[in-house]
Amino acid sequence: MYAQRPEARPATVEVLVDGQVVRVPEGASAAAAVLLAGLPALRSTPVGGAPRLPYCMMGVCFDCLAEIDGVPNRQACMVTVAPGMRIAPQRGARVAGPRA
């Protein structure tokens, strides 16, 4: 769980995280919005069904792959929020390279 600090960074951008409205500061990443929304998991693993949330916040671990504005397999930690952005847990297999 994370706490915002509006005195330092006012939450001015409204996004949708898994359908839920969340306000976050300008410059936050979509992964930050997921954490601030308190989502329990962004994906569950194919083998063990274990929940996962973003781990590195800088594009290394790929545990933040999400569907953003309808496009799957995006690294949520590398995408800056924009008003009205829709961020949803990844459905289906996670893909690193270009595949049809």
């Binding site: 330092a8 590195c56 930690c77």
Partner: peptide
């Protein structure tokens, strides 16, 4: 280390720098 709520210390710092947020609890 894969449990939600576990992350890199630098990752939490990124959250602080980019969103001003800190862990609660």
């Amino acid at each position: 280390w894969t449990l939600p709520g576990v992350m890199g210390a630098g990752a939490a710092q990124i959250l602080l720098k980019t969103a001003g947020a800190v862990p609660a609890g």
